[in-house]
Amino acid sequence: MLTITDLRKVYPTGDEALKGVSMRVSGDEVVSVIGPSGAGKSTLISCINRLTEPTDGSIVLDDTKITSLSKRDLRRSRREMGMIFQEFNLIERLTVMENVLSGRLGYMSNWKAFRRKFDAEDISKAYEILDRVGLEDVEDKRVDELSGGQRQRVGIARAVLQRPKILLVDEPTSSLDPETSAAVMELLTEIAREEEIPVVINIHEVDLALEHTDRVVGLTDGRIVFDGPPGELDDGARDTIYRGGEPRAKAGERTTSTESVEIEPEGSF
């Protein structure tokens, strides 16, 4: 279970990205964080494993208070949080297998890591996960030979191989085409069920969020303004998230980025 309490982040430039965010994620629920650009979605995700250092507030994963860990203990805790990145962030010049196995680096001695001496158990698990995400027989390819969708699957496999307690997913689909995006979201939700871990997905495509996640958190200007099941996200709630409360009629033509909102997913209402 992940508990975030009153999380704040002020960047050195003075930008206040998070102005007191509190939320709780548990079980195997898939939570999407939606909101306009600059609302603090990415900051929130990367504060959880402290790739971005929060300014104030606390983050607790199970019994561990992430926000007060020393560097060394933080590394230990990061092993238990799988992260999936917008730009995939794979080691481009290494093979698919090395990338997936790099999910175990936190458990290996430097000497073993240097010699690429991975445990047999991890290797067999890696093969299993590669099959699971639909990447058979590409383990010896270099990542820079793969397509975007394949790369994101490698990214997912790397995170799953960590056997994490939670998956943190930062804009997994914004570098992908719509069809691949849906497949990746599908895969993420299935993995949450199979591994019985919660998943936090920060995503800007609202229909994908509604279709694939159990719970939607709306973030605007560093604050949570909506938190509930997809069915509750009505027009009023959307206006609150994307237009700061202005009703749609007045702001109708102001933004094109929310056009997709109008296409309702089937069966949600």
Binding site: A120, E121, S124, E128
Partner: peptide, 16 residues
């Protein structure tokens, strides 16, 4: 994927 048994024997090693 659903039938992992036949190939399983060699899958705990990988040569870079």
């Amino acid at each position: 994927g659903s039938d992992p048994l036949p190939a399983e024997e060699s899958s705990d090693s990988w040569i870079r």
